[in-house]
Design a protein around this nucleic acid. Sequence first.
DNA 1: TGTATTCGATACACCGATGTATCGAAAGGG
DNA 2: CCCTTTCGATACATCGGTGTATCGAATACA
Lengths: 212, 212
Amino acid sequence: MPMSMPLGDTPRRVTRRRVATRARLLDAAFTVFAAKGFGRVSIEEICDAAGYSRGAFYSNFATLDELFFALYQDRADVIAAQVAEALAQDGPGLDVPAAVDRVTEVLLLDVDWLLVKTDFLVHAARDPDVARALLDHRARLREAVADRLFRARGHTELPAVLGDVDSAAHAVVAAYDGVTTQLLLDKDVEAARAWLKQLLTALLTDGSRTPV
Amino acid sequence: MPMSMPLGDTPRRVTRRRVATRARLLDAAFTVFAAKGFGRVSIEEICDAAGYSRGAFYSNFATLDELFFALYQDRADVIAAQVAEALAQDGPGLDVPAAVDRVTEVLLLDVDWLLVKTDFLVHAARDPDVARALLDHRARLREAVADRLFRARGHTELPAVLGDVDSAAHAVVAAYDGVTTQLLLDKDVEAARAWLKQLLTALLTDGSRTPV
DNA sequence: TGTATTCGATACACCGATGTATCGAAAGGG
DNA sequence: CCCTTTCGATACATCGGTGTATCGAATACA
């Protein structure tokens, strides 16, 4: 059978070279997507940036969409792990300001990631399958936050307006998204961090407490 | 001089026909952008949807980007006016739940608009000039909210954590953006409205007050 | 109504990007 | 070390979209 690109079924031998090129293609894609936006990038640009020809691309992916999806999955996993780690620290009593600080550092670390993630959002908004992947990622983040808040119940009080721990976690993610939008426009990372800290503090601590 | 498309200088006569075609092109563009995303739309698709040929397009715009920009400006003005109107109602004493209800209805009315607006965000994130336009729109919304809160000072208390009226307005916009993101993924308008109301209430009323 | 001007349809030339087929080179198994 | 399998570079055919030039039709103004 002279089919030259058997992508449908897994090849029997899995080469070391293959995983390396795949990784380099994904890295290059991340850079190029961040710089120009998914909608304005050609397959060839990514291959050039990675130091390959288009043959390498078609040997590893069927379409640009497929590469984009794989790229998002990889990076989202890393972020989720980082957030979980940032929340795992200190004991059962939740030190809200400290935890907020750590999470904020992780979430607003890399503007390029926010750019790519927003491209992916736009993409997902028109494709239910892709949307599912993004919703999964958000759910993972939310659960990490909710778990942490749940462990802290009894030690630290939440404002009553938010209701349960789950709503509070939802609110944290929403605040993150809101600050992200502003950051993408003014590119002021430090301002965004300060602002996200303030927002999260306002959401997670009782309003009757005085700030600062 | 046989230049056939004098777009640089304003034509001496301004035809009625021209404004009609321009409007129809913008309307069609809105529909097509919402359905497929800015990055996946060709000039020809828009002309087809509007019932024109590409000649009409090039007679009115120089590039797709230019049309997109004009489209955003038009619609953003409408939204800003609607929000201002929703906030203008009832007297100096601010009825937070009622105002929140009205604003929420306006802001989360049209999912297509949210889709296009997010496309525009992604676009603006890579072009400072475009970003300025979007920041202007956001500033207009913020000011409308801040004005309203300012008029209500003394009558209604804000939670201390948010600080001044301006921070509170900032928080309102951030909450809007956050809820928008979720809505684009799950397409559940009613859930988004309920959730935005809850978030805004949590942000704008003192946490010591009990809800509902 | 006549006429100068503007508007938009059509046709054409032109990339740029895509996907496939082919083949030499690299890599792993024996 | 040989030989089989896989990987990725190159070449090719093709297609869709772009931008411009041209020209008839529509429109405003006198």
